[in-house]
Computed example of a mutant assay.
Amino acid sequence: MNKKVILSCAVTGAGETTEKSPHVPVTPKEIADSAIKAAKAGATIAHIHVRDPETGKLSHDVNLYQETVERIREADTDVIINITSGGGGDWVPSEDDPTRGGAGTDIQTPEERHEPVGKLLPEMCTLDCGSVNFGNMLYVSPTDWLRKQAKLVQESGVKPELECFDTGQIRFANQLMQEGLIDGDPLFQFCLGIPWGAAADAETLSYMKSRIPENGRWAAFGIGRMQMPIVAESVLQGGNVRVGLEDNLYLKKGQLATNEQLVDKALGIVQSLGSDIMSPAEARDLLNLRNPNGKEG
C-alpha cells in the first residue's frame, strides 16, 4: 500500500459537460480558481485543459492556457501544474464519406499539441500513448506522431505523464523509453473505464501496473461512478490517484460535485486507508520536476 499519495485533480477536461453541471469551470479565471480551491482542499497536482469562454467547448488557444497558468502561479496556494498535450486528436467519420472527418473532428499535429507546453513550460504535461476507440469517436495518436511529441516534451524539460487507456499503450510507452525519449523514472497514468478502453476494475489495474518498469511510478483514475472505487484500489495497490470534473460530475448519486468536494472526498478515502496526501513540494522532489520558475527541481 502507498503511504504517501500524489493526488491529481483534473479540473475541467474537454468533454461536453458544461451543460450537465454548472460547476464545470470554463473561463481561465474559473479554471484557475477551481484549481486553487482543489489545491487548498489537498490536491497535489492540477491537470489543465482550457475551454472557449463563449461556447464552453474545447479550445487549443495558447493565450487561454497562458492566462490560466499565470493566475495559478500568482496564487498564494501551491500546486503542481500539469497541462494536457492530448488535444486535437478527435476523429469522427463522416456519415456521407467515412474516409473524411465529420462534425466533431478535431486533429492537431504533434507540434500544435505541444505548443502550450513548449511556451509555458509547466512542471508536467500529459502524453497520451496511443489511439483508442473513445465511445463512437476515435482518439488518434499514431506512434510516429507520439515519437515527435515525446521528443518535443523531452527537449522542453517538462515531465511527461504517460497516459495509457489500454494495455498496448503501456507497451508503446515502454518502447519510447527504450528509444531514449523519456528521461528519468517514468510516470504512468492508467485511464480506466473509457468506452472502449481498459476496464475500471482491480484485475485490470493489477495487470497494467505489472507491465511498467521497476523504476516506474503510476497513478490511476476511473470515470463516472468508478472514480472513488479506483481511488481506493489505487492506494491499496501502491499507486497514486486522480479525481476531478473531467472524469466525474457527481459527489454521490443525484448530487453534482465541485472539484474541491471531489478532492476532499478522495482525501478522506486515502486517509481512511492509513495513507496521506503528498504535498506539491514533496512530489516535486520525488518526481524530480522543474520548479515553477522554470529551473530543475
Rank of each mutant, 00 (worst) to 15 (best):
A173C: 05
W196H: 13
A219P: 02
Q154T: 03
M208K: 08
G104C: 01
P98A: 04
P28W: 01
G168E: 00
V270Q: 05
E67L: 12
V263S: 13
M1F: 14
K295H: 09
I277M: 00
T12V: 14
K295R: 09
F188V: 04
A198P: 08
P116N: 05
V158D: 00
D76Y: 07
N63I: 01
L192C: 12
M278T: 13
L176E: 05
G197R: 04
E282T: 11
S34T: 13
K252I: 07
A173S: 07
A266V: 10
A150F: 07
N63E: 12
T12W: 01
N63Q: 14
I277E: 01
P22E: 01
D96E: 15
V153Y: 09
L245C: 13
S156C: 15
E282D: 15
V50A: 14
V5N: 12
E282F: 05
D97A: 02
G193H: 11
I72N: 02
E246G: 13
G42H: 09
G268V: 01
A173V: 00
N215T: 11
R147Y: 09
D61H: 14
R100G: 02
P142H: 06
H60P: 03
R71G: 13
I277W: 00
D106A: 08
R284I: 03
D166Q: 08
Y250Q: 07
A198T: 03
I72W: 09
W145D: 11
N291P: 03
D285C: 01
T258Y: 10
A198S: 09
I80S: 07
E112K: 12
R51D: 08
Q237D: 06
Q154L: 10
S131R: 00
S21W: 02
W196N: 13
E54A: 15
P292Q: 09
G239I: 03
G157E: 00
E282P: 07
T77Q: 15
I194D: 05
R113F: 14
D90C: 14
